[in-house]
Simulated assay, not measured.
Amino acid sequence: MRALKLQGRTVAMIAIIVPLVLVFAYVAMRSGPLAPVKVTVVRAQEGTVSPALFGIGTVEARHTHRIGPTLAGRVKRVDVHVGDRVRAGQLIGEMDAVDLSDRVRAQEATLKRAQAGIREAEARQAFAQAQARRYDKLSALQATSEELAITRRQEREIAEAGLIAAREALAGAQSERAALVAQLDNLKLVAPVDGVVTLREAEPGTTVVAGQAVVELIDPASLWINLRLDQVNAGGLASDLSADIVLRSRSAETLPGRVLRVEPKADAVTEELLAKVVFEHPPEPIPPIGELAEVTVALPLVQAAVVIPNAALRREAGEVGVWQVKEGRLQFAPLKLGATDLDGRVQVREGLTEGDEIVLYSERALSRDSRIDVVPSLPGAER
């Protein structure tokens, strides 16, 4: 009787424990570390990609004109302000002449004296020539001594040399006056091109040295973007490619442009390629120099091929590929990739065919032995 009671208890315990074990195993296989990995899948499709490059640049002026005096002096007046538009040849300021006008008048007096000196030298030369001819005739008739004839010829040569010296003095005085007038003209600050004033670096009364800028101008038609692109992703960059420019201050507006040139010297520190991108039409109003701009450069289209999302790419054992789903099991497929676009698609040259099913997102890392559970989506996978 006692044995029957023990046997009944054992059977009861087994009846309780076995379902619990089964439930635990089921739970462990479905929600624990042994549970299948939830994944989303996508099929490889035939298509084309529109490759493009994206980079950040700054607005710069190709031609900047820094206008200032050629000699040290004091600023007399500045007639323009920052933001003003000026025309080529427009007077925009002037330096204080100090004593330069007096020096020009003094040089004009010197010039008049030199001109009077020439007239005097010409008169002396004419008199000396006449005397020399007269005494030469008298000497031929033996009406005077040879010594007097020689003396008159020497006086003629001296008069001719004096005339030459007077002419040299006149030329020197004219050159000095021309130099002073040129200096006086250089005191006028004139715009060399049509442009916009970007800097006013000196105010009236300020003393500046030779070559120091008083006003800075830029030509609005010469604006361009100094673009920087990562060297790794800059393949295919070339001049004359079309580009879309979005200024930081005008994020809702896309301005057309093109690549003017690719700089022959790259930035070795930041590992970037440099390019100059110009606007197809000068933007209005003119953007500030130094403003950041986002530039998208369109590369030439490529031939149609198998295309997959680049989010599906994985690296296993040093190879880049995707996890391919075949008959419910995982298989890693190494790929040879081609061009990519800014929409997150990549071209597959080798390794997949159209219609192959691959893993797009997974809730954790995968391996060949991983069991998977295909679901429509994973929370937060597309963020």
Rank of each mutant, 00 (worst) to 15 (best):
S31L: 08
Q129T: 10
A317T: 10
G290I: 07
P69N: 04
V49T: 07
A132V: 03
L237R: 06
M13G: 01
G355D: 06
M95R: 06
D244E: 11
P376Y: 01
E216H: 04
H63M: 05
A178C: 07
Q131S: 14
E272I: 06
L223K: 13
R315P: 00
A202G: 00
V269T: 10
R66N: 05
G162Y: 02
P220V: 14
A243W: 12
L187C: 00
L6Y: 05
E284F: 01
I158F: 00
Q154L: 02
V325W: 02
D267N: 14
I158A: 07
H281N: 04
E94A: 13
E294G: 08
A221T: 14
V209S: 06
I118C: 10
Q107T: 15
P264R: 13
A114N: 11
L34W: 11
G8C: 06
L366E: 03
P288N: 08
I286S: 09
F54K: 06
V86T: 11
P69Y: 01
P283F: 04
Q107M: 10
I289S: 05
V98N: 12
D136R: 15
L260Y: 09
E46T: 15
Q107F: 04
R87T: 07
P19L: 02
V322H: 02
G380P: 09
V82S: 03
R258A: 10
L20M: 09
T64E: 12
D194M: 05
L247E: 03
A140T: 14
E120P: 03
P334S: 09
K76H: 10
E271G: 06
F127E: 12
P204E: 01
R113W: 05
P220W: 11
P19V: 04
N233G: 05
